[in-house]
Amino acid sequence: MDQAKNFTKGLIRENPVFILMLGLCPALGTTTSAFNGMGMGLATMFVVIMSNIVVSLIKNFVPSKVRIPCYIVVIASFVTIVDLVMAAFMSPLHEQLGLFIPLIVVNCFVLGRAEAFASKNTLWSSIIDGTGMGLGFTLALTLLGASREILGSNAIFGFQFLQADGMLVFVLAPGAFIALGYLIALANKLNK
């Protein structure tokens, strides 16, 4: 497969959040600001890349009937590593993301990449795929976080550009759904 296409498909054409509607829980739950969204995206990206690497390495040793539990253990281990490292060195962000860090393990899109791509492809294309998909996820979360932060608190990445109260609803739960709805409509338009 063409590696460039393999890399870019995750960004727009098969964007996990906007097009595939996968991994919505962290996408909505952690994007109260652009920074939090990006942090969550990068944490997930690390897990996707690492589990793609390991799954593609072990794919021939694992009998097909137990492959899913094996992949889950691999993913869960990397999630725990992210959890521990973030608690140690990025404790404020870790606190903000909270429950959603361990929940990366049930992010359908992580297991989906392992099962649908890494278990069938070479190491190299699995890495490319994981990076592309991870970047697409990070991009989506950062975009969603940024638009909620701009509309909700008149700020971007913590920088206040207007000293006034924003449209609070976008920081709150309902705004997450609505903002994502319009971003998906936009992505559909771009995809045509």
Partner: peptide, 16 residues
């Protein structure tokens, strides 16, 4: 690809 025999499945899970 490894066969899905009982032994292989247990070994794979154990090792991982």
């Amino acid at each position: 690809k490894r066969e899905s025999t009982f032994f292989n499945m247990v070994m794979a899970l154990l090792v991982i």
